[in-house]
């Protein structure tokens, strides 16, 4: 059988639909947090900002217009299960489908050569691939468009191994203070603790793909998340920098073991438009290697 003949159109449509959901539909967990914040916010200006954000989500959904014109660098997180192995052609199919999705849905191409800076294209998706043995059949794709107003405020801090929780908390609050009103607060802050420099930053991003309206399953992290959130919300930057009690909606921590000589802390700040959407690709024909 000639593998190149396998029809991958169904998969492509599924991926394009995933891209559309990421941009046109506010994540339910984010929406819950925003509604809650709008209820609690007392001052008029920050409350109005929160209401505009929610109205924007409704407009995006109805009009099929991206929630934010910064449609980001599309990050694709792919998890293959215990049976399948992704083929080079599979990678190509997924890349092409994401690019087509952006083009078809009139999403802004924001990807340029770092120095030439002209002719933004639809070809530059970034890619993370994991094996997840819990997936019995098929592969799971998550599209996470990351805008750069907030990505520019990402931070890596290599702390000493003797640093305590307080120091970790302090450097996160400092990063948020620096991000300030221009990075589209209220933020959702992802923190990756441990691993290596690159891994800590990846964890900080990955943790935001999961539900952000509930705390970590690790009780120590749950406590830290709460404490950091309280400290951040005392900064008074507020929604769209209008002051008020909600500079961040949530803080999420994920960790990995690290080296005896260090304590990397990766901080990823997401704007209020924390976007992602996932799908399980069950028909993996044309994406996998045989055997």
């Amino acid at each position: 059988m000639n593998k190149n003949k396998i029809d991958t159109r169904e998969t492509e449509e599924l991926i394009i639909d995933t891209v559309a959901r990421a941009h046109f539909r506010m994540r339910p967990d984010v929406k819950r947090l925003l509604l809650d914040a709008a209820r609690k916010e007392r001052a008029a200006a920050p409350r109005r900002a929160l209401e505009q954000i929610l109205e924007n989500a409704r407009a995006a959904r109805t009009d099929k217009v991206a929630m934010c014109q910064d449609t980001g660098l599309p990050l694709v997180f792919l998890e293959t299960g215990r049976q399948e192995c992704l083929s080079p052609r599979g990678i190509e199919v997924i890349r092409r489908a994401v690019a087509r999705g952006y083009q078809r849905l009139a999403l802004r191409p924001s990807w340029v050569d770092p120095f030439r800076r002209v002719s933004a294209s639809y070809r530059g998706i970034l890619w993370h691939w994991d094996v997840n043995p819990r997936i019995k059949k098929g592969m799971r794709i998550t599209v996470c468009p990351k805008g750069f107003g907030s990505e520019n405020k990402s931070r890596l801090v290599m702390l000493n191994p003797t640093a305590g929780r307080d120091e970790v908390e302090e450097c996160v609050v400092e990063a948020v203070r620096d991000a300030g009103p221009e990075s589209c607060p209220p933020f959702v802050v992802g923190i990756g603790i441990g691993g290596t420099a690159d891994h800590a930053l990846l964890l900080a991003k990955k943790v935001l793909l999961g539900r952000v309206d509930r705390g970590s399953t690790v009780s120590l992290f749950r406590t830290m998340e709460k404490r950091i959130l309280e400290k951040i919300n005392r900064l008074g930057i507020g929604p769209m920098g209008m002051g008020g009690a909600h500079t961040a909606l949530a803080v999420k921590i994920m960790s990995a073991d690290t080296h005896i000589a260090g304590l990397p802390v990766g901080i990823n700040i997401s704007c209020h438009a924390l976007r992602s959407a996932g799908a399980l690709i069950t028909n993996t024909g044309g994406l996998t290697c045989a055997g």
Binding site: Q52, I53, N56, A60, M67, G147, M240, H272
Partner: peptide, 9 residues
């Protein structure tokens, strides 16, 4: 209004 591109459109 930051991050409200659909509303502004």
């Amino acid at each position: 209004p930051a991050g409200c591109g659909a509303l502004l459109a």
